[in-house]
Amino acid sequence: MASAESSRPSIPAGDPPSPRSYSNPYLMGVGLGLVLLTAFVVMGRGLGASGAFSSLVAWGLDSAASGHARANPFYVGYLESGVGHPLKSWLVFEVLGLAAGGLLSGALAGRIRRRVERGPRFSTPGRLAMALLGGVLMGVGSKLARGCTSGQALSGGALLGLGSWSFMIMVFVGAYATAWFVRRQWT
């Protein structure tokens, strides 16, 4: 990974890629849908992301304070879910693949570079604080909803689950209701 200051031979003129350099969203959506369909056909289950981090938290706590973790049904659910080990779980391996797939695509497109994503009017420390806060909200929200955009909205949405569709609508409601207040971060 090249530092922000050094030359980046893979990216012409040193400019960040414009949104137009990404692939057609409808085609990428169809590709993503075929990956999801493959998961349904091969495994009988959909995609996910937040669950892998729940396994990580449960495993970490079990390693540090096993009695505490084992007394909590939330953690126990994840500790019992792997193939003989909490981290040998389907979602943990799927998320490892997710990272590898992102890296592969980013490398092929010359989009790998150290950066902090923020709008032109927002400071880097401020952005990192917002990223932390957003992550915490997302952690609590995804556990309340029993899934995130991948597991609930995408997978449950394709299977027409009532909870998934209610969740998906509320994600857009929550984001649009908040967007104005954090506009300096992005615009």
């Binding site: 995609l47 992301a49 937040s50 981090f53 997710l98 994503e117 917002m130 990223a131 932390l132 806060l133 957003g134 992550g135 915490v136 909200l137 997302m138 609590v140 929200g141 995804s142 556990k143 309340l144 909803a145 029993r146 995130c148 955009t149 991948s150 609930q152 909870g163 998934s164 209610s166 969740f167 998906m168 609508i169 509320m170 994600v171 857009f172 409601v173 929550g174 984001a175 649009y176 209701a177 908040t178 967007a179 954090v182 971060q185 992005w186």
Partner: peptide, 21 residues
């Protein structure tokens, strides 16, 4: 819980910039 969770996740999305995946 899925309605409240969805709201929190939506707020977290625009504040944090990403969803987990």
């Amino acid at each position: 819980s899925q309605i409240v969770g969805g709201l929190l996740l939506g707020i977290g999305f625009v504040v944090g910039g990403y969803c987990p995946g």
